[in-house]
Amino acid sequence: MATDAALRRLLRLHRTEIAVAVDSAFPLLHALADHDVVPEDKFQETLHLKEKEGCPQAFHALLSWLLTQDSTAILDFWRVLFKDYNLERYGRLQPILDSFPKDVDLSQPRKGRKPPAVPKALVPPPRLPTKRKASEEARAAAPAALTPRGTASPGSQLKAKPPKKPESSAEQQRLPLGNGIQTMSASVQRAVAMSSGDVPGARGAVEGILIQQVFESGGSKKCIQVGGEFYTPSKFEDSGSGKNKARSSSGPKPLVRAKGAQGAAPGGGEARLGQQGSVPAPLALPSDPQLHQKNEDECAVCRDGGELICCDGCPRAFHLACLSPPLREIPSGTWRCSSCLQATVQEVQPRAEEPRPQEPPVETPLPPGLRSAGEEVRGPPGEPLAGMDTTLVYKHLPAPPSAAPLPGLDSSALHPLLCVGPEGQQNLAPGARCGVCGDGTDVLRCTHCAAAFHWRCHFPAGTSRPGTGLRCRSCSGDVTPAPVEGVLAPSPARLAPGPAKDDTASHEPALH
């Protein structure tokens, strides 16, 4: 009773807030009518008042009428009001819900409408889902798969039609296919003929059939049928067999079959498995989609049935006599038709004709302190090069084509190399640097090759510096006499390219 009084008091307290929050009759008014909170006449009256005075006034009048009803109607109103779709449509209802007392429970059932309790003993237990329907569909599909699609060729003596089998029958139906081979029951999904010589313990000319048996419980189990008994694959494991010639990621696949039913060829011909030897223990289905393919039931050349050999690369099948050149017997292992072999060759040939990528240039590290003349020119003028003790990398590039010797140069053309002071002394051009340390401070000019250098860098042994005729380390061993002091540049003949010694390969005349 306390809860009923509290709900009535809360409705009177929030009546105006609810009326202002509800700006549309749908969905709240319609939901109240659906849950029998508002009768039909009051529903029509509220809609009429909404058209006349507006939605807030109409709902305020409806809530005032609701306060005169019993506690069950008020409880049902609060339940409908706080439904998710009403809270989404009328956003101003959320503060009312947040301020609702926590001790007021809106989930209690309506009085007088409590459903009768059902004894637990009368409640049926839930049924577990079964796979009976899938099993029945598999039974119905198996006879259809064994139905012949056409008439065999005159040369083929193997013609068999499976008798119709009602689904209610649980007995196995067997077809006489000759040579002791028996087909599987209607619940078998796949059958492959297997030679009895590969099964340990088999006697006589009995041949087993590799099947997948579907049981009534819905589970499946792969086994071997020899005669009327089934054997699990673990009985046929043979770890010492060295003649297993397995197909790549293979499961067994029928390579020879008669049109209309699988079996042995007439005249004692023995149908073979995809792999010879003992049956392997793992009978998992292969991951290669080509091995799941269903080959055609007629020859791809003459479009006739009979004894066919199936290609492992495509769905086509052929007569042995229709092949070019014809085959006398079934080859062992994987067999592919000429079209598949030709496609494989065409895929391999473009790969062989692809040009080989060019090898990157060989990189040879230079000892610290040495650099090529090109690196000396590329440096920024007026700045010493940083990191001189790091190992430089010199790339061996292809030799350029031989060019004509340089033409003779006048001494005026070499004027930018040297600057003559007032006393006739050779001065260095701006930006000249030593080729060893890279520093341009207090550098000297070689009178023979006009290269800038430090005496301490080229002659670290402490050799005394002569007063005139300074030469760098590369030119100090040259027998050519030094030019007379005061000459602007060496003779043009000295600039012609010539053979250089091994220790002077990195010091070429550089223009500054």
Rank of each mutant, 00 (worst) to 15 (best):
G201A: 07
K52H: 00
E171C: 15
G219P: 05
P119F: 14
A58T: 02
A144I: 10
K102A: 00
E88C: 04
V123F: 14
R247Q: 06
F236I: 10
S153N: 06
L32V: 00
A193T: 12
H30L: 02
K235P: 14
G112Q: 14
E171S: 15
H35K: 01
D23V: 00
L97H: 15
E229R: 02
P39W: 04
P200V: 07
G204S: 07
S185R: 08
K52T: 13
S24T: 01
P252M: 15
S24D: 05
G150K: 15
I209G: 05
A170R: 14
S156F: 15
G268W: 15
S135Y: 08
L106K: 04
S239I: 06
T68K: 08
F77M: 02
L128D: 01
F236L: 06
R257G: 07
K114Y: 15
R257S: 08
F26M: 00
T151K: 08
K235N: 04
N86T: 01
L175A: 05
K259I: 05
M184P: 05
E51L: 03
L128W: 14
D84H: 03
S71I: 05
K102D: 07
S249Q: 09
S168Y: 14
L81V: 00
F77L: 01
R12W: 01
F43W: 02
L66S: 01
G91Y: 15
E136N: 05
A138M: 15
Q57L: 14
P254M: 07
H35F: 02
F215D: 08
L93I: 03
R132F: 01
A261V: 12
P27T: 02
H35T: 01
A202E: 07
E167C: 14
A258W: 11
D198V: 09
V123A: 08
A138K: 08
Q225R: 09
A246E: 05
S64L: 01
V256R: 03
I18C: 00
I96T: 00
S195Q: 06
K133I: 01
S185T: 15
E171A: 15
A160Y: 11
L255D: 03
K259Q: 09
L28H: 00
Q173P: 11
P125I: 14
R110D: 15
V20C: 00
L255S: 07
A170Y: 15
L49F: 03
G260E: 10
G218F: 03
F26D: 01
D23N: 00
T151G: 14
E167V: 12
T16E: 15
D103T: 02
A170D: 07
H48N: 06
V123L: 13
Y90V: 02
K235T: 10
L106D: 02
Q108L: 02
H30D: 02
L146Q: 11
E53F: 05
G219C: 15
A271K: 11
P115R: 07
A170I: 07
R203N: 02
V214E: 04
F43L: 02
E167T: 06
S153T: 07
K243P: 09
T3A: 11
A170E: 06
P125M: 12
W78T: 06
L122Q: 03
K161G: 15
V226D: 06
E137V: 08
T3S: 09
L7R: 02
V206S: 06
D84A: 02
F230C: 05
R190W: 02
V192R: 06
P252R: 05
I18F: 02
F230A: 05
V214I: 06
T3V: 04
K50W: 02
V22H: 02
K243G: 10
G201P: 05
G268M: 12
A5G: 06
S248L: 11
G263F: 03
S195C: 09
E270L: 14
L67W: 02
A58P: 00
R247N: 09
L122I: 05
V37H: 03
L10F: 07
A6W: 06
E270C: 11
P252H: 05
K235W: 12
R79D: 03
A117R: 04
A271W: 15
K222Y: 00
L158Y: 11
F59K: 04
S24P: 00
G268F: 14
R92C: 04
S196L: 04
